[in-house]
Amino acid sequence: MGGQKVIELVKVNKVYDMGAEVQVNALKDISLSIDSGEYVAIMGPSGSGKTTLMNILGCLDTPTSGLYLFDSVNVSDMDDNELARIRNQGIGFVFQTFNLIPRSDALHNVELPLIYSGVPVSERKERARKTLEMVGLGDRVHHKPNELSGGQRQRVAIARALINDPSIILADEPTGNLDSKTGDEIMLFFEDLYARGNTIILVTHEEYIAEHAKRIIRIRDGMIESDLPIERNGKVKAHHDTEKVTVGTGGQG
């Protein structure tokens, strides 16, 4: 790997104005860079600023100050519509709560990014179908989210994240709503995507999930605590060593 920089943050701050002169410094002078083809986990305790960082990396939000270069383009001061284009073309999101559209079937959910980049219908359907086949859901294209299991929903979401061939895949606690077995399956998916050269950024608070990555960035109180590659030998194996068994709620808000 070791391709060119796909993400570069320089002294990024995020301040939430709570009114009445109260401010929350959610991110403090964060600087980091991520190369194309990397598999990075962002870790930290609750309230440390993971989601805030994730939102900025995903161009859902802009920093209060500092510089953010995405694919060497400065996106710190872009307006809504320009950011929408970056998200559409450059970023694939995988959320903890899947975030599928309940009224639409799997195929249509996967099509959505293509709709917003203006791909014609026939090509759209074809690509969406292929991508669903790739994640093993070729026989579920016309199922609505509530007709799918948690793991299947997350696979639909992964297909949706992949369809526009994005520069990065951003996953925020992708296994948080899944039981550990299904979670492991999903992690194998990411492993596979990484092997094919995708850039993956994973946000999690669980050590054994983070260990799937090749590099772990730990943050605390809005600052980077450590940023280290993982030394590892051999293949990834399923970790059930933590006592926590997260039960898939199956809900999606």
């Binding site: 859902l60 998200r87 559209i101 980049s117």
Partner: peptide, 16 residues
């Protein structure tokens, strides 16, 4: 609201 959030995350512009 949530659906709108999803669509925006996936790249829907304001006009869409």
């Amino acid at each position: 609201t949530r659906e709108i959030g999803i669509r925006k995350a996936l790249g829907a512009r304001r006009q869409a």
